[in-house]
Amino acid sequence: MKAKLQIQRGEPGAPLHVEAFEIDFEAGQSVLDGLRAVRQSADPTLAFRYACINANACKECMMLIDGKVDYACTVKLKEGETVLKPLPKKALVRDLVTEIAPPDERLFPTNAK
């Protein structure tokens, strides 16, 4: 099966753009599996956050998936197109990465970036 990921790329300050990647997948695989496959097969510069991969414990992989806020590690890949964007209400860092730490756990507490 093939999935097409439409991913918003870029840093704040520069124009954002969307890039599409096509990947092979098996039923049951997660959107996070897909993103990791993109890094392996097409573009290792793609930035997204994750830690626990299987446990759904770290809660770091949240993003906008087809317009809905969700965990990339629990949403399953589907055939056809999936649109991925960074969280809309958090400061953008790059690509799908946003500033999600509580302010007092950041190096620059007051600053978004």
Binding site: A51, C52, A55, A57, C58, K59, E60, A101, E105
Partner: peptide, 11 residues
């Protein structure tokens, strides 16, 4: 990673 989330403990 994030504080208290990056390693084995939380998993």
């Amino acid at each position: 990673s994030l504080i208290g989330r990056g390693g084995a403990t939380v998993m």
